[in-house]
């Protein structure tokens, strides 16, 4: 259902709201039908809600497709929720299990037929399930990749040792030349400026200005380094969709995602950029990253600058603990 757009920036809340509206609409319709004496029995209402959420909404409405493991989790939770709803009171529970009891008792022709059919179909279904699970699979195995392995306490780059807990980006400075994250946070790119920085109100924020100084000058230099080296994979919007991105598996990190650099300390990013995929620790198994160790191609200053550009461009702030 890609024709019905998920609005960027609001997608998580949009999903919850849509689900709430769907269930509300269903409740209203069912309530009206009940008043007219045609309400859906609880048993079928429960099954309908579950099927709607898991087999329709999560599978076809949300895009890109949700991996099966997550849908399985959601499906189980939804099933638990539906059980809690249909058995919340004794009266509702009795109503819910009535069709099941009727089939088990098989007092009418229809229920007799259903019971017999179930007795035949259930073992066949189970047999099919067992058969399928024993079939050899040629799919690539499922991976549980540690995307952000724990960093070492220190890392050595170009002969100098950096303590990751305390090191700081030397270019994240205020006009007085002092390290100042609050200053740089206040001068990141904002969405209303537009990608070409047409509406830069403050000259201090203009990376195109050839006379720019301090923080914004370093951001621009970082941008130059990025577009000379990184954008082929990480994309010119820093969203992990560069020209070469889809030649790799997994595709490169999407910096615009709230789960990547926004989650990390700047020194963590420094360590990852410097050491690349080959420098991933044991915890990062199966080390699925082709990123080169950039310490072999860039200076320490260049690494710091490019990191600063990434934060500036995405509008995120490096994580700090205090």
């Amino acid at each position: 259902m890609t024709w019905l757009k998920l609005v960027e920036g609001y997608m998580p809340m949009q999903m919850i709201t849509e689900l709430a509206i769907c269930i509300l609409v269903f409740s209203i319709i069912n309530y009206s039908l009940k008043r007219a004496g045609m309400g859906l029995p609880k048993f079928w209402a429960g099954i309908f809600v579950w099927c709607f959420v898991n087999l329709f909404y999560l599978k076809y409405r949300i895009y890109p497709p949700i991996p099966f493991s997550v849908r399985a989790i959601y499906g189980t939770v939804a099933a638990c929720g539906i059980f809690m709803w249909v058995s919340g009171s004794q009266q509702e529970w009795e109503e819910f299990k009535r069709p099941i009891i009727n089939v088990l008792d098989a007092k009418t022709g229809l229920t007799k037929f259903v019971r017999t059919a179930l007795l035949i179909l259930l073992p066949i279904g189970l047999w099919g399930f067992a058969y399928n699970s024993f079939l050899p699979s040629f799919d690539e195995p499922i991976e549980l990749r540690t995307v952000h392995p724990a960093p070492p306490a220190t890392t050595k780059v170009h002969g100098k040792t950096y303590v990751l807990q305390t090191a700081a980006n030397p270019f994240r400075i205020n006009p007085e030349g002092k390290y100042d994250q609050a200053y740089s946070n206040a001068h990141i790119v904002s969405q209303d400026m537009g990608r070409l920085m047409k509406d830069v109100k403050n000259p201090e924020d203009n990376p195109w200005d050839p006379n720019a100084k301090g923080y914004i000058k370093h951001v621009r230099e970082g941008g130059e380094i990025f577009f000379q080296n990184c954008h082929f994979c990480h994309g010119d919007n820093l969203n992990g969709r560069g020209l070469w991105a889809f030649a790799f598996n997994p595709i490169p990190a999407n910096f615009t995602d709230a789960g990547t650099i926004a989650q990390l300390q700047e020194t963590f990013v420094f360590w990852r950029v410097a050491k690349g995929g080959i420098g991933l620790p044991g915890e990062g198994f199966p080390w699925a990253s082709v990123m080169p160790p950039w310490e072999q191609h860039l200076t320490v200053d260049e690494i710091w600058k490019v990191i600063m550009f990434e934060y500036w461009h995405t509008g995120y702030y490096p994580r700090t603990w205090e």
Binding site: D139, I142, L144, R145, G240, A258, G259, Q263
Partner: peptide, 29 residues
């Protein structure tokens, strides 16, 4: 309970277009 690091096959990863899902990834933090 939405995981930040999702268990998935490489094919699912490719279809998703990255390690984080653009909708559910936000629940992971």
């Amino acid at each position: 309970i939405t995981p930040h690091t999702i268990v998935m096959s490489p094919a699912e990863l490719k279809a998703m277009g990255g390690q984080q899902h653009p909708v559910l990834g936000n629940y992971g933090v």
